[in-house]
């Protein structure tokens, strides 16, 4: 008997080690056509991304607009089909999902959009907005639906519930609208949330409130949260890990603590230096900003994507060969030739 218990424990641990989401060499390209017929090229919006996410993990994806972070989110949500590479959910290949599997998958992944007002249908009441996902996913009992709507509204602190139910989105403030979007994402009790810039449209004081709400939901339900942002300063309060993206690729992966104390990739360092904290000393100094603009994804540079703007370029290497992933310590890995000697591949 004890053997069986040990065995069970082992299988349990084995199961725990299966990542909730795993991406292997993920590419999402968009075809550009000339005259609607001839192929003129591909926009490589996502060009070779690998990562693993485990239950209960929060990860922030940081980068500028056009770096592919929203494409990554939409590929994860199943809104774009990957051009190359594979995406595994709980160990199952998403390319082999049947229609029912996809429906179940969509129910277990919640999406929080950037602009709450744009994301909510203006002609539906709060009650209807929250009820619809339940109806679609076959919760037939009316009282069960009501109970779940109440529970989720309590969780996101849209109180008093009775007052909010008959309201339309335009009657709510920005913060309340974003809570409603979160409630809608949470109503099917998902395992994972994808939050695409959830606070960038909100005021500073409300921003903190929403971040804390997401954080408490994550802790309570042991969710995986993918938090996409361009604002490095909110990351500290939210996630355990950070991926930095540049030119459709991940350039650095690290725990938040390691990244904030010592960013390694020259691009992450540039982002770091460009972020202003309120400080009177800022008035006296100019910022260091790398020259140039992000690369065209139609025709990305050979070698490292950042080399045309990089001050620490190694000539003959960075502009010819793509940097592999170098692991620095346990918590950090970076795609940059500068760390060839220090890190192991």
């Amino acid at each position: 008997m004890p053997d069986l218990a040990v065995e069970m424990q082992e299988t349990l641990q084995e199961e725990e080690r299966v990542p909730v989401l795993k991406a292997v060499n993920l590419h999402t390209w968009f075809e550009i056509r000339k005259f609607g017929f001839f192929k003129a090229g591909d926009v490589r919006a996502l060009d070779g991304v690998d990562f693993e996410l485990y239950q209960g993990e929060t990860v922030s994806i940081v980068g500028e607009s056009g770096c592919g972070k929203s494409t990554l989110a939409r590929t994860i949500l199943g809104l774009h089909r990957p051009t190359k590479g594979k995406l595994f959910f709980n160990g199952k290949d998403m390319a082999e999902f049947k229609k029912e599997d996809m429906k179940a998958y969509r129910a277990s992944v919640g999406y929080i959009q950037q602009d709450p007002y744009g994301a909510l249908p203006p002609f539906m009441t709060v009650k209807r907005i929250l009820e619809e996902p339940l109806i679609i996913n076959g919760v037939k009992d009316k009282f069960e639906r009501q109970k779940r709507i109440r529970n989720v509204m309590e969780e996101v602190k849209l109180a008093p519930i009775e007052d909010f139910l008959p309201k339309f989105p335009h009657m709510l403030s920005g913060g309340q609208q974003q809570r409603l979007v979160i409630a809608r994402a949470m109503i099917l009790q998902p395992k994972m949330l994808v939050a695409d810039e959830p606070v960038s449209m909100l005021d500073a004081s409300v921003r903190v409130e929403i971040l804390q709400l997401l954080r408490s939901l994550q802790e309570k339900h042991n969710l995986v949260i993918i938090y996409i942002t361009h604002d490095l300063s909110t990351v500290r309060y939210f996630s355990e890990r950070i991926f930095t993206m540049y030119g459709a690729r991940i350039v650095e992966k690290a725990t938040t603590k390691a990244l904030l104390s010592d960013p390694l990739h020259p691009y992450t360092q540039a982002l770091f230096k460009a972020t202003s904290d309120p400080d009177a000393a800022n008035l006296k100094a100019y910022k260091e900003v790398p020259a140039g603009e992000p690369p065209s994804l139609l025709n990305p540079p050979k070698g490292c994507r950042f080399y045309p703007r990089c001050a620490k370029i190694i000539k003959g290497k960075c502009d010819h060969f793509e940097p592999p992933e170098f692991h620095i310590g346990d918590d950090q890995s970076v795609f940059c030739w500068l760390y060839e000697d220090q890190g192991k591949q």
Partner: peptide, 11 residues
């Protein structure tokens, strides 16, 4: 604007 563009503009 993006972070780096923003820093540039402030300069």
């Amino acid at each position: 604007l993006d972070l780096l563009t923003q820093a540039n503009l402030m300069n």
